[in-house]
Design a protein around this nucleic acid. Sequence first.
DNA 1: GATGAATGAGAATTCATTCAT
DNA 2: TATGAATGAATTCTCATTCAT
Lengths: 180, 180, 180, 180
Amino acid sequence: MSRKQRVIEAATQLFAEQGFEKTPISLICEVAEVSKGTIFHHFKNKDEILRAVFIHITELIEEADKKDEHIESKALLLPSLIESIFDGMTIPEHRQMYQFNFNVMVHPVTRAIVADLINERYQGLQTTTEEVFRTLGHDNPSIITKMFIAEIDGIAMNYLLNDDFPIESIKSEFIKKYCR
Amino acid sequence: MSRKQRVIEAATQLFAEQGFEKTPISLICEVAEVSKGTIFHHFKNKDEILRAVFIHITELIEEADKKDEHIESKALLLPSLIESIFDGMTIPEHRQMYQFNFNVMVHPVTRAIVADLINERYQGLQTTTEEVFRTLGHDNPSIITKMFIAEIDGIAMNYLLNDDFPIESIKSEFIKKYCR
Amino acid sequence: MSRKQRVIEAATQLFAEQGFEKTPISLICEVAEVSKGTIFHHFKNKDEILRAVFIHITELIEEADKKDEHIESKALLLPSLIESIFDGMTIPEHRQMYQFNFNVMVHPVTRAIVADLINERYQGLQTTTEEVFRTLGHDNPSIITKMFIAEIDGIAMNYLLNDDFPIESIKSEFIKKYCR
Amino acid sequence: MSRKQRVIEAATQLFAEQGFEKTPISLICEVAEVSKGTIFHHFKNKDEILRAVFIHITELIEEADKKDEHIESKALLLPSLIESIFDGMTIPEHRQMYQFNFNVMVHPVTRAIVADLINERYQGLQTTTEEVFRTLGHDNPSIITKMFIAEIDGIAMNYLLNDDFPIESIKSEFIKKYCR
DNA sequence: GATGAATGAGAATTCATTCAT
DNA sequence: TATGAATGAATTCTCATTCAT
């Protein structure tokens, strides 16, 4: 793995664990086993590392989502979408990524650094999800989708922050609510 | 207003806007118009300012919530609860408080500093909300409540972070969903 | 002497000897015997130290110039002005100050930092010197003054940079040239 | 143009504009469109680039000076010398070179790097100019020459540093003064 | 209680130089 | 010759905290 890759991986982990601001570059160096000079050779500044990590994570998420295969039955469209979202967030290896996402998006300073990337990603999510609700004949697919995404966000956040969050039961209730 | 109060108000605003870590104490001094010495006279360290702000905000929220009392009709219990929550989050003066809350709760470092206070507040919220769902005869009031709180969290977060979030439409949909 | 004063004196010496850019703040700390924190408590950044030094030196020069007493005879006005300028620049303790001046003024980066101060000082010098030439009935006092100042600059510069510059003989020639 | 030449041209421009110390080699690379490796292949270190630029500039100046030859009339010797000096310094393309010269010669650190070259160049200038004053029968050709060079230095410096320096009027006055 | 000068540990960043390819 | 990745020492600057007044 190239040094640049090593830096991104190390930064992903550290930013998720301790946040962007509390992670000194010196620590990234240690974990990635590269020198400080190398970091600044590959990234103009610390902000650019954040952006690289955000892009990296977006790629990982998109890759994971590709697995969702074609659903035949319309009735299963929404349940299987919800299933795959909940499954995605409960994969232990993804925990870090989700944590990082919330950290970055909620903090005004970091959010500003990747504002354009957040927007891009959100547009994509909105478009594909809206398509599902439209197919199912909802009155207000755009609004429903926005609410849906927001609710998922909230559930993911609570799941990530509380060790005893009953994610499985909530998944059931959530599906029940949306699919009756 | 006492100097201590001035510090808490200034810190609330600054932490909400720029986050805890990016807010130097010197800036709090400037905004609150007190000296550094004074701050360290009233607060053991920066973490204690964060805790004081968190407590201050919790009080403000609880005060605002006291107003919604005695609903007679059971049918109105949930709609009026939801109404009051949405109304609370859309009051312009509360925006800052909500922003601060998310900042602090999502960031691992700040979250650790006020972990006990977060827990306390969450327990209270869970208990009183659960009581509502129990009264309405839901099967699984504890789970439903956790989902409900998480969803509200997500909606508040999306509302705070996106300037064009259609909060009013989503309030309607949300009530519709929960009160069929 | 206050720490701030100590910093200014140390910086004056070091900037003169090694130039602004080659003088690390850490070295100023050592010489002034203050901590790094103290420097940044009193000066917003390194540029502000440069400005403080420039102002300090300007004061010293103006103080030295005050000694020039009232000349009665018009014939002696110019010779004694030239004398006092040359004497000023050959005082060993002033050498450093003159060196610093040239360093700062010639270097585009440092010049920009104190541009306003340079201008102010130059205006004063131009005005008072022009008055002398006007009194003596020169045709073009403004132009003559500018040339005069430029020539003095050049002589000072050559004197400061060459150890064997025959400053005394040149003073005589210079007076001869301007006062026949 | 060879890569080495390109480096020298780029360095000339950059050193003149921003000074030696403030010009990173990486910037020279960009402007010259060569790689860092190439620079260190052709120059032992950064100091050697400075020396190469100094030598390059000296050549350009000497080349320009060769043009003024055979003046028949003794009376025109000095006026035409002064004319050609002033003309040289006001050629727009030469501005950069003159700026570079002052930067390097005044700054103690850079001056040390090219001390021998400065000396060589100065000796040549002194010798040829002294010859003129000797021919004209001045008492003290060596001293006069030193003063003359210093004054020209000062005028050039003031011209380069002040946008509104009245160089043409001063040229006239200067000639008047020396050629009465 | 209140002040602000002083501190020093640690942060991001710059940059000349080396070296394997 | 030419390249650019890699390095690490050095630099500026930030900031929580202490303490004498």
